[in-house]
Design a protein around this nucleic acid. Sequence first.
DNA 1: GCGATCAGGT
DNA 2: CACACCTGATCGC
Length: 681
Amino acid sequence: MSSFQGQMAEYPTISIDRFDRENLRARAYFLSHCHKDHMKGLRAPTLKRRLECSLKVHLYCSPVTKELLLTSPKYRFWEKRIISLEVEAPTQIPLVDEASGEKEDIVVTLLPAGHCPGSVMFLFQGNNGTVLYTGDFRLAKGEAARMDLLHSGGRVRDIQSVYLDTTFCDPRFYQIPSRGECLSGILALVRSWISRSPYHVVWLNCKAAYGYEYLFTNLSEELGVQVHVDKLDMFRNMPDILHHLTTDRGTQIHACRHPKAEEYCQWNKLPCGITSKNKIPLHTISIKPSTMWFGERSRKTNVIVRTGESSYRACFSFHSSYSEIKDFLSYISPVNVYPNVIPVGTTLDKVREILKPLCRSSQNIEPKYKPLGKLKRARTVHLDSEEDDLFDDPLPVPLRHKLPYQVTLHPDVILLTAVQQNQPEKLRQSTGCCELESMQSSLLANFIDCEESNSESEEEPEVPESLQDLDPVTLPQQKADADVPQWEVFFKRSSDVTGEGLENFPSSTETGRSQSPQLFSDSDGESTHISSQNSSQSTHITEQGSQGWDSQSDTVLLSSQDRTGDSAFLNKGAHRPKAKDSIPASQMEQNVLCSKAISSDVKSRDQDITIVPSMEEHIPEEKRLPNHSTYPDSHSSSDFEIPSTPEAELPKQEHLQCLYKKLATGESIAVEKRKCSFLDI
DNA sequence: GCGATCAGGT
DNA sequence: CACACCTGATCGC
């Protein structure tokens, strides 16, 4: 639970995700996402009153967050004062003190956070440096490297402070199966159950919170079955979500809720009250999404646990794991880091101890082995030096971006002047330069997610038994791709693979009792254990979780080892209302620019500057769209949006192996030309 | 009657 | 061992 009090040291006149106490005096408000614990005070009468007499105060958030927020009548009074900002479109915001008239400008950029629909991180740039407030986030390894706007001039931006979601910043939570793995597992289970008969139904026991939508949409997409929910009006302007939900109780997948739902489920009664269809009784299983985590050495990803005759737990996390947090922070390498959350059972000092070595001041004394998350960065710098970067320095040197009022350093800054209406007037500046080098660096970084690859290869022979029967062509492909982020492997394929492998999964109540299905068990008997309990004690898995858990007959492990890249979830969909017909110009512009920049191959620094974005340069929309639609999520159903690196090439296995060898032997890796570098090494 | 806080639940 | 809620009790305005 966030303990962030709303204000950042560098910019104390703005408040983020807190709206009480001191925050009542803020010049501007920011909301990272629509979860209640980030909305404290947001509908309090004190703030409402302040708003009535401070007409220049606004709340800034993503379009989706605005939509979700305003669906609730309790927040409707904000309507005229919310300014939604497109993701990845730097925007200048005036911070005015209404008493003194004192004014300061700040540039804010929303970056996708992968936590729930509409969730963003805020990157602020102003006179006191650049700071990043992450809100809550779930970003896979390497995802920061793919965010263009975290880069500038070919390197990671000089970020003074990061205000970080440290929910799982504890080595215990070393790894959490990826979204793709979790989804594949759940999909397989749901598929195997509901395909038994039209009377086999699944209840997804979800908490009342945004964040499960990608689960619903993907299940619906894959299975052709809409998900029953209590309410869907908040998604009325998000067709990519809306189409997969229904209020018709006749469907086979339910995510509806009721206070006595758990009880109901035991009697094959769904929370919405139905127990039969066409007078034929239903057969119900429940699946409860919960976070599961694994130790450092474990490559196990058993994402489904059977907890009872007809109940399951499925791995699901809204937050980044320990290793994901470390990857993220070490990539950014800020001067300071402030944890937003102190995980239960640990202390602020312990969290700081973990995070501090990932910050900049500690880099000098960093020894020997660099986790590959670091190498991404090292290479970026190296690349710069190859390309006559005058400012190159082995250690990140503060490269202050003084951004007083003119914001010419930004390629696409939207100036936000006094705004009265809902939609701010956006004035595009066309003075910025294209950030060619940042494209290059992310292009490289895209497939150097080596840390994971390395450890994975250690256990490479480990293939789930159930996958061994699969199409021999498909499987090696899966394995080969497994080491790199996947842009071209989507759900459809990977989940089919998993799904097919899991035919006889849950026992059918018709057949009598539990069949104790043996989908996968821990083949090598390594220390990952699963327990199923009937007490209220929570079930969890850890690498060291072997203290006395006896294997129980009704325990099921579902191991989903195909590595569906998380990026499959992070694209398209619900970031904006009306997503389908409004791909924002800003993003388009960037894509176009990137394409141009990259296709001109390795350019010197000066040449970058000559590439000036302008509205007139736009390529016709039809030509741009394919670029956009190369994103994994061909069915437009996920909730988050992280563009993959424009023009990124999918690395080939042999190139990577080559690279790994070099790394292993400690050879230096000089990357001179992007296109052929991996062949050359 | 409302909100804030806490305890307890899922 | 978490999270993001929900409910209900109590207190204060």
